[in-house]
Amino acid sequence: MSDVLILGEVKEGSLDLKTLELLGAGKKLAGELGGEFSLLLMGDSVSGMADEALPYGPAKVYKLEHHLLQGFKTDLWLACLEQACREINPKVLLMSHSFLGMELGPRLACRLNTRLTTDCIDLSIDPEDGLLLRTKPVSGGNAISVFKCPGEPQLATVRGKVFAAAESGDANGEIVDIKAKIDESMIKVESLEIVREEIVALDKADVVVSGGAGLGEEDGFELLEELREALSKSFANVMIGCSRVAVDKGWISSDHQVGLTGTMISPDIYVAVGISGAIQHLVGMVHAKKIIAINTDPGCNMFKVADYGVVEDYEEIIPALIEKLEELS
């Protein structure tokens, strides 16, 4: 058995960054439990990834391969995960707070009669009873709560970018095969078609670089686009936003608009460039975790809600910032 099991995810043929972070978290928790941590990989073909995972230090990499696991069919993946949990019998199971984690987590918790805490930003083991302490933001991020629940395995989905990714080292673990016991009759929800979309989903962005009237001209957004590209090297989902005035001026299309009449967002970082902060705009972004304001007017509203402010012409700051970001990355 493993004390801490991590459900791995694969992205574009290699281990997802979030999984590496989970391995980091798993190692920490295994240490607190005085046990070991392992990784579970599921899919139609995951052998390559299993090898890739070993250097990150798991005691075991469980490999559950089946041709029916091609594509993500929740019913089958859930059955496999349940089966794996019953066979491995971990004390703690961690999943990413991702689409996959949220599809499987609640239903798995029900099947195993345990309790899941979603979107955790911190995890530790209570030394008294060995249960998982799960820290999670609640009330739209206005409060932080720590939960402790009975049941086994102790189950949590973990927010991205809160744990440092595990570091690669010597590969001492072993790869263990689990034979999937699934068949097509288990599919209750039939997939008919997958439609891919290219959309400006501002509400899904991790970082939003937003411009307003203070840019002075349409070309200002070209500079913001350069900043966006520079930030994309360090952050996952960087997008361009704007204020209503910028849309009104025709500088940018309205699907980029943040605020009352645009999209309401709460990204990790919101960079407001040349936006004074009208109430219509503020209500749409004030829940961002960190707000950075760049504006020439020190009295403007944006500075009142910002964490960091730069009172300077954006045309001076941003090119310099892009340079510094390149140096850092």
């Binding site: 009237a213 002075g216 209503r244 005035v245 009104d248 001026k249």
Partner: peptide
């Protein structure tokens, strides 16, 4: 005022 800004 918004229009003034928008019109530059």
């Amino acid at each position: 005022e918004d229009a003034r800004k928008a019109a530059g």
